[in-house]
Design a protein around this nucleic acid. Structure first.
Lengths: 225, 225
DNA sequence: AGAATTACATGATAAATATCATATTTTAAG
DNA sequence: CTTAAAATATGATATTTATCATGTAATTCT
């Protein structure tokens, strides 16, 4: 397993603000973990005793609603850090994490990283900034959810995935998820999600191959409605 | 104007984690501000050069949606601190703040408080924790917005206001806001908000006197649907 | 106090979305 | 490879919510 000091993945998260010395210490105590598609990384209500650093793959962060449906709150890819909030607040996690494809992660015990959080102001400030940004994103999501139509939200998540996670060689979106997941991101019934994707297909905005989706008309999708 | 060192309001926010010395410095440079009902404290996109500490009154934090409607993201009362995010990220604010009734606030210049944020780990950790909690609340709001009916959301905001901000001597909710604001909190059309409140009234769950609302049947409201 | 503005209320109707039913296709398991 | 299970698709219908219209009550202004 590669050492934290030389790991490029950390460039995308707060760990980059640690000193070389701190990184070596973290590296020594981290453990690598592999998760298969569909596997639960942690469950809402669990006590996390560390943070997870995503080296490869994608996972969804979900929250259970009172009506029993799971809502996807965020997608996390390479470089993402899971469990920041629980690290800071000492509370049980309020989200579940589930692998959307095969994943490779590093687990860093809380005890190790907490010391740095208190002692290294650069690291603390970086975590603080990341958290502030998450909060901003969350506000945006809230407004989208409250004010936009399901069709619009679906178009936006497709654009979001395209912009942030890119496409493979055949131009299909890199992130491949079920219609049920799309429904749970957008906050609608699975059938409604399917219907809207079918409609997009008929209108030539997207095309599909199995679960894979290709964006055919970015502009129209972006400015839909 | 009272000194920060002896101000009880700060007990509700991160300022309580400052040392006596730091508080005296903050106190020396803070300015008091009065806002009338309906007055804009700051507007989305503005550069904030400090944080606001709410001494009295209530304000709403809103975000403009692309469709031109304002969405209320949060209500802030005595003890609340506005502008934390902008302080930390050095970005322009992503929310507007509008007074819902007459307010009394203290404004603390950024320059003064930033030094403490970097030097005082206890203060930094406290801001971090507050931010983490805001994030958790935001996730909950997102799920509510995505998965619950307008009626349910309306019931919940009434319960929320009752639980968090209390009632006056006549048992009417302390926070008095227009139906339009209710609509913008719940994320619905003003007419729909009005209709639902009328329905609640018919069902004996609430009663009203002008804009004031009294919760008559907390239990039924809480478990509605 | 009276006029004007704004907020509240409610009906009628349209549009969006959910739910239930039932095929069909795709994927996974043996 | 075959079969069972799961995911996708689509119709029919019900429910929820938005929009438009119009009237009444409450506030504000002068």
């Amino acid at each position: 397993m590669s050492k934290c000091e030389s790991c490029i993945v950390k460039e995308f998260n707060s760990l980059k603000s640690l000193t070389r010395q701190e990184l070596m210490r973290v590296s020594a105590c981290k453990t690598g973990k592999i998760y298969k598609k569909g596997q639960v990384i942690f469950e809402e209500g669990e006590t996390l005793n560390g943070v997870y650093c995503v080296r490869d793959g994608v996972c969804k962060l979900t929250k259970l609603s009172e009506n029993g449906k799971n809502q996807v709150v965020k997608l996390v890819v390479k470089g993402g850090l899971l469990g920041k909030r629980s690290l800071v607040t000492e509370q049980k996690t309020n989200l579940s994490a589930v692998a959307l494809n095969d994943m490779e992660m590093c687990f860093i015990p809380k005890s190790e990283i907490m010391a740095d959080l208190v002692k290294n102001p650069k690291f603390t400030m970086d975590v603080l900034k990341k958290m502030a940004n998450d909060l901003k994103d969350s506000d945006i999501s809230l407004v989208n959810m409250a004010q936009k139509s399901v069709k619009r939200r679906m178009a936006e998540i497709l654009i979001y995935i395209y912009d942030n996670f890119g496409t493979n060689a055949d131009d299909y979106l890199n992130i491949v998820i079920s219609r049920e997941d799309y429904a749970s991101i957008v906050g609608t019934a699975t059938e409604s999600a399917i219907r809207i994707l079918s409609q997009f297909k008929k209108e030539g905005l997207i095309s599909t191959k199995g679960k894979q989706i290709k964006i055919e008309d970015y502009g129209s999708l972006k400015w839909i409605e």
